[in-house]
Structures are given as C-alpha cells and as structure tokens.
C-alpha cells in the first residue's frame, strides 16, 4: 500500500507543469524514503530528476517500493481537476495498474477521486556521479527565467561564463548579439532570496541550448531561488529547491565545438 498526502496540493500541479513539456513519460519510484523520478527528454540531451522526501508530506506510507509508470500529460490533465487550495492524496496498491488521486477542498465540502492508468515504461537509468562543481551560482529564479526568455529571442545557444565578479550570459544570432551579466550581491543587499551568490574554485565557460534552459524555467513557480552548478566539460545542473520537501534538478549536456 502506498499513500501520500500533500496539504499544499498545488505543489504537485506545479511539479508536473515543470516536467511535462520536457518529459512525456516517466517512472516515479516510491519507497520508504519518499518519491524520486529520473527521466530524460526524447533526444537524450537533458535529464530531469525529482526528489520528494517522505517528511515533506503530511502523511506518507509506503509498505513496499513500487514504480509508477506515468504519462505526465495525462497526470497534468487530472491535476487540473484539483482546486488550487485542495489537499491532494495519492494512493496505489502494491502491484498497481492505476494511481488514485483524491482531491479535498479545504472545508471538506467537495471530495473527488480520479484513477489514472499506469504504463510499463522502459527507461535507461543514468548513474550521475556525486560531483563537486567548480562553480555554484545561487540566484533569484525569476531573474534566471527572464534572462533565458530574453536571450532566446536573439539566438539558440547561450554561453554562460562564471567568474568571481559575476555570471555572464551571452547569445549571438542573425539579428545581432547580447550579454546579460548578473553581479554577486554584497552582504548588505536586501533579502536573502533576492541575492546572487557565487561559490567558485575556478572560472567556467560553457555553451548550452536556450531551448532546454527554457524548459527548465517552467519550475520557476516552485521557489524563489535557482542554483546553477557548473564544471568544465560536464553537464550543467539547474537545481530548484522545493521548500521543506526536496528539489527538482535538470541536467543539460553542453554544446561542444566540432
């Protein structure tokens, strides 16, 4: 028996919104520790990894580890039937064919339940090394979203350069080129969540497809901060912490000169 209850049901809506344009089908693994998901996009250049700890749920029970093969677009359709203030409960048997979703309005006046058919999904599981990155940038997620959106109008590839002073995002295209530099905040600058912080061992410059960075920014509503982890010649990690429960991380392979 698997049962997981989230008082803030809208969180689940936001999570699926953050994944479904990148990944169509995925296995969500449920264990005593919580929910995890690892799925690549169709062209195998990026990967989305979701981690939700059991302690972040209001109620969590998982007697036996199970894997839920989900069509994320269909899950999104069902979650659209939940009100933004609804409590959402997920339920599945030990050898499930379906996932049951129950939505309860805050005053308990409306209770609905839906069953989503599960699928058998074969996936390639990538072993991601637990790497120490040369640069870790923490910045407001809204600012990152804006930069990616703005630069995508000009070109396809974004050059991200991280130095001690700041992070430079550069793009060039047929109409011209552009750069946005965000500088490290000084300690006195306002709110923690509005700050740009850079931890750096050595400067890093990498090229990435803006199209994919744009997919990742669908996770912006999940939190005020995004972290970018970069090392030379390895995929970037774009990590969105989800307050109190876990995180969504996106890995994107760099573009390389031929």
């Amino acid at each position: 028996m698997f049962e997981a209850r989230l008082t803030e049901g809208s969180l689940l809506k936001k999570i699926i919104e953050a994944i479904k344009d990148l990944v169509q089908e995925a296995n969500v693994d449920c264990s005593e520790e919580g929910l995890t998901m690892q799925a690549m996009d169709a062209s195998h250049v990026s990967l989305c990894s979701l981690n939700m700890r059991h302690g972040g749920f209001d109620h969590y029970r998982c007697d036996r580890s199970i894997s839920l093969g989900l069509n994320l677009a269909n899950l999104g359709k069902i979650l659209k039937c939940a009100g933004n203030d609804d409590v959402v409960t997920l339920k599945a048997e030990d050898e499930p064919d379906t996932l049951t979703l129950m939505f309860e309005s805050p005053n308990q006046e409306r209770i609905s339940d839906f069953e989503l058919k599960l699928m058998d999904i074969e996936t390639e599981h990538l072993g991601i090394p637990n790497e120490e990155y040369k640069c870790t940038i923490s910045m407001p997620s809204g600012e990152f979203q804006r930069i990616v959106r703005d630069l995508a109008v000009i070109g396809e590839t974004c050059i991200i350069t991280c130095t001690k002073e700041g992070v430079k995002f550069s793009v060039s295209g047929d109409l011209g080129n552009g750069n946005v530099t965000v500088r490290q905040s000084s300690a006195a600058d306002g709110d923690e969540k509005d700050q740009v912080k850079i931890q750096m061992e050595e400067p890093v410059t990498l090229n990435f497809a803006l199209r994919y960075l744009g997919f990742f920014t669908k996770a912006t509503p999940l939190g005020s901060t995004v972290k970018l982890h970069m090392s030379p010649d390895v995929p970037i990690v774009v990590e969105y912490p989800i307050d109190g429960i876990g995180s969504i991380s996106y890995f994107l392979a760099p573009k390389i000169d031929e």
């Binding site: 195998h44 990967l47 072993g127 995929p235 890995f251 392979a253």
Partner: peptide, 13 residues
C-alpha cells in the same frame, strides 16, 4: 556547435 548527449557524461546503470 554540436549538442552532446548526456550518456556521453554519465554511465548507464
């Protein structure tokens, strides 16, 4: 510029 694949960096398990 070539878009590299993730599997080139991470081993499959």
């Amino acid at each position: 510029m070539t878009q590299s694949k993730l599997s080139a960096f991470f081993r499959s398990s």
